[in-house]
Design a protein around this nucleic acid. Structure first.
Length: 486
RNA sequence: GGUUCCUUCGUCUAACGGUUAGGACGGGAGAUUCUCAGUCUCUAAAUAGGGGUUCGAUUCCCCUAGGAACUACCA
């Protein structure tokens, strides 16, 4: 049997970590099983829908390099893959259930439903949900409502007796008493749009989905979906409920935990490799040892059996570590292209050659691509350090610092102009430090602060190379006269 | 409240019922280099609690505790 899975997001928000993780698991399961990955847009919530979110969905998947075998834009044999373009299908199937006595029209107003809900809350009733008022309407009552022009919804007749069980590959059997299943949920809304439950079941069946991999938050509606499959007389697919991604406090990951949309991470300068690798590792492991996986690796070795049961906490620190790792893996040329837009948006301009040597110097110091801005700002803005004590290294003093800067810069600059090797210059500066009876850093620090306007910087030789000799000399001269001031 | 699910270092996780319970991030210590990073070495850190089953339980069963999700004409 062919292995067919789908990712079926609702464009009611930007793609977030949880959603993307579901997409990734589906995609990798499809690839490693030689199956198909289908993308389906569940845009039945017209209130929250926005094309910006739909664009974000396509952009995010494209950025990650996740392509779909069937779906919007690309097409396929089971299209259309956008639910708002399939309305007649759902309406037809909903009517079919009504005709067969498995569903019914409901004319209750939102106000009445609200009232029912309020009463249940007040009476602290065990029973929650719709009171099935319209389930037993007579033909006359129905005709009367129709005459009033009330647009009905269609609700499923959920059995009140018995229980429903479904099997989940990672969770095992999950059983729920029918009386505890959502009481007669809406299948078709009064605006003619289907609800998630109807559209989902109908499409999964029509599109030949064999495995449903979705977040564990859907477990409670599992039995309901089984009941729907039974009502239609269809064979349900295999279920696989994925553990959820949580924030530090153990609650469902949300904005208050920090960035959660992939767009945010992309903007900050996280690489797609990072997102793919780390996100897959929340709730999945190959053998517990290996942790570095490329997309291509996962397309081969991802196994559904290795998915964990328990929810996992999203660790921003570990994400940073992965990002730093993948940045270090880039060639200088690749990294130069990646940092370019960040410099540009900071108003920093650099030619290709400079970008490459900047990438080289900064590579090991970056956690995100946006770090390049603070790392390189000394090249583009000149804000001298105005606190003399910051020029003084540990174990040195004002006087020694000044002479270290004067004599050190002389050695430094003349050697550089003679084109001497870095090691030789370092040696010469080491000599000077011995003579002044301070540590090497007592010589390097004043130079560093003078040249890079900061105590923390890229390596000095790299900094000078990037800055240029003229500017370097100017800044040193300025620092010397600043330190000479009383 | 009701229903369902979950439980190994702080976090992500590994361990056909038999291991000194392993790895990674983060933490701590040290080495290296001009600072910061990076790299290398070392280190602390866990089977939620209680009962069973078994020669032997992280692993199987039960109870307790804790946590989570769901409970819409949202998905």
């Amino acid at each position: 049997m062919e292995f067919r899975v789908r990712y079926a997001p609702s464009p009611t928000g930007f793609q977030h970590i949880g959603g993307v993780r579901t997409a990734l698991f589906n995609y990798f399961a499809a690839k490693s099983n030689g199956g198909s990955f289908i993308l389906r847009v569940e845009d039945t919530d017209r209130e929250r829908y926005s094309t910006a979110y739909l664009d974000d969905l396509y952009q995010t998947l494209t950025w990650l390099g996740i392509s779909w075998d069937e779906g919007p834009i690309k097409g396929g044999p089971c299209g259309p893959y956008i639910q708002s373009e399939r309305l007649e299908i759902y309406q037809k199937y909903a009517k079919q259930l009504v005709d067969e006595g498995k569903a019914y029209y409901c004319y209750c107003s939102p106000e009445r439903l609200e009232e029912v809900r309020k009463k249940q809350e007040e009476s602290k009733s065990e029973y929650q949900g719709y009171d099935r008022h319209c389930r037993s309407l007579t033909e006359e009552e129905r005709a009367e409502y129709e005459r009033q022009g009330i647009k009905p919804v269609i609700r499923l007749k959920v059995p009140t007796e018995g229980k429903t069980t479904f099997h989940d590959i990672i969770m095992g059997d999950i059983t729920r008493k029918n009386k505890d299943v959502s009481p007669d949920p809406v299948l078709l809304k009064s605006d003619g749009y289907p609800t998630y439950h109807l559209a989902n079941v109908v499409d999964d069946h029509l599109m030949g989905i064999t495995h449903i991999m979705r977040a564990q938050e859907w477990i409670p509606s599992g039995p309901l979906h089984i009941l729907l499959y039974q009502a239609f007389g269809w064979e349900p697919p295999v279920y696989c409920h994925l553990p959820m991604v949580m924030g530090k406090d153990g609650k469902k990951l949300s904005k208050r935990h920090g960035s959660t949309s992939v767009k945010d991470f992309r903007d900050k300068g996280y690489l797609p490799e990072t997102i793919i690798n780390y996100v897959t590792l929340v709730g999945w492991a190959l053998d517990g040892e290996r942790e570095i996986f490329s997309k291509e690796d996962l397309e081969k070795c991802f196994k559904i059996e290795n998915i964990h049961k328990a929810p996992g906490v999203f660790d921003y620190k570990k994400l940073d570590w992965f990002n730093g790792y993948y940045i270090r893996q880039k060639s200088d040329e690749e990294l130069a292209q990646l940092i370019k837009p960040y410099l540009e948006s900071a108003g920093f301009k650099a030619d290709e050659e400079k970008l490459i040597s900047l990438a080289h110097a900064a590579k090991e110091r970056m956690k995100t691509l946006s770090d390049i801005v603070s790392l390189s700002s000394f090249l583009f803005e000149d804000v001298p350090v105005a606190d003399k004590s910051l020029y003084v290294a540990k174990g040195s003093d004002d006087e020694k610092t000044l002479s270290a800067l004067k004599r050190g810069s002389e050695i430094f600059i003349s050697s550089l102009e003679r084109g001497e090797a870095e090691e030789k210059i370092e040696e010469a500066l080491l000599e000077l430090s011995k003579e002044l009876e301070i540590k090497v850093n007592g010589v390097f620090q004043p130079l560093r602060v003078a040249i890079t306007n900061s105590q923390i910087s890229l390596p000095l030789f790299d900094s000078v190379r990037l800055l240029g000799m003229d500017e370097t000399k100017r800044r040193i001269k300025r620092a010397i006269s600043f330190l000479e001031e009383k």
